[in-house]
């Protein structure tokens, strides 16, 4: 293909996105678009399945049958999100095995928030309320992103996340209305999860390397700083409503800009966790690697069995 032909294709491609039309897997796309989507979508899929681990930590200890069932169902939803995000990524010409390999080797990232430990039952509430709350803010704009399979997957993901967020808030609210010990448990969870949740919305705009291109492809529609502000403005009144205190002495309503001013985040901690040195990075990856390696014989058996069945059908046909 000549340079002019490629340029023509690129122009048509850009025009299509500008018209808000979807790019489908078999459409021509610039290689960078393909690679960026593989990176972002797989990172999202990995976050879903690594995210199962901190919550899975509390299934066996959930305090009531109702909570146990709801927690199981929620984590199952996350596995489902992982499944269709991997499938959507596979349409870009990469296999699930390759994507896992990238996760296990550390080449691919996942949301750093899941490298924090879940220490009490209240953490199940905090994750739903804050972590899923921040995730929704990140994800709702993706329902209208340019790549069709991703946009469609996100419609369903967002519906379920929104349910998880309410469920998490309800857990925290129940604790906040409970005994002194329960209230303390809720406040402690908020103290530990607040700042990591704010960091989920990404580095400061000035330090974000992917934003401009992603805006053009509608992979991102608002800047990290705007999303963070939206999250804070939405969450602070919820905390106040249930009598919990946001652990930020600099948090203050700004009448002029009609939103909250807030304190500085500890970016050293953020980068430490992103670079693999958070409290649970090693455990999370090793849990995923173990599941994959210990399951190899099972997957091999399923393949061998399927092959045998296929051969039987062929033989019968002959």
């Amino acid at each position: 293909m000549s340079d002019r032909e490629v340029k023509n294709l690129e122009e048509m491609f850009d025009a299509k996105i500008a018209r808000d039309e979807k790019i489908e897997p078999k459409d021509w796309m610039p290689e960078k678009y393909r690679q960026t989507h593989i990176r972002q979508m797989s990172q999202h899929a990995h976050s879903e399945i690594v995210g199962m681990l901190p919550e899975g930590n509390w299934i066996s200890r959930a305090p009531s049958l109702k909570r146990k069932v709801a927690l199981l169902a929620k984590i199952q939803d996350e596995a489902g999100h992982g499944l269709y995000l991997y499938s959507a990524t596979e349409t870009l010409g990469i296999s699930r095995e390759e994507l896992y390999e990238q996760l296990h080797s550390g080449k691919a990232k996942y949301s750093s928030i899941f490298n924090y430990p879940t220490l009490t039952w209240a953490d199940m509430g905090a994750i739903g309320w804050l972590v899923d709350g921040a995730a929704i803010i990140n994800q709702v704009p993706l329902c209208s992103t340019s790549f069709g399979p991703y946009a469609r997957a996100m419609v369903r993901v967002c519906k379920e996340e929104s349910f998880h967020q309410r469920q998490g808030f309800q857990i925290i609210m129940t604790l906040a209305e409970g005994s002194q010990e329960q209230k303390e448990m809720a406040q402690d969870a908020l103290n530990r999860w607040w700042w990591p949740s704010l960091m989920m919305l990404g580095p400061l705009d000035a330090e974000s390397i992917h934003t401009e291109q992603s805006m053009k492809w509608k992979l991102k529609r608002k800047s990290n700083d705007d999303l963070r502000q939206q999250f804070i403005d939405q969450t602070v009144p919820q905390a106040e409503m249930i009598g919990l205190t946001i652990p930020d002495p600099d948090l203050k309503w700004n009448e002029e800009k009609q939103s909250y001013d807030f304190g500085e985040m500890n970016w050293d901690e953020f980068w430490q966790v992103v670079k693999g040195h958070g409290p649970c990075n090693k455990e999370r990856i090793s849990a995923r690697v173990n599941a994959w390696e210990n399951g190899k014989w099972v997957r091999d058996a399923a393949m061998a069995y399927a092959e045998k069945q296929e051969n039987k059908v062929v033989k019968q046909a002959i």
Binding site: I49, M52, L53, G56, I59, S60, L65, K68, V69, L72, A73, I75, Q76, A79, G80, G82, L83, Y86, A287, N290, A291, W292, N294, G295, K296, V298, R299
Partner: peptide, 24 residues
């Protein structure tokens, strides 16, 4: 329920959790 997140494949993970959910 102890197995959630540790299955040999995502599909079997979901299936085992589903059985757990049904039983509860």
């Amino acid at each position: 329920g102890e197995l959630c997140g540790h299955g040999p494949s995502l599909e079997t993970d979901i299936a085992m959790t589903n059985i757990s959910l049904d039983l509860f």
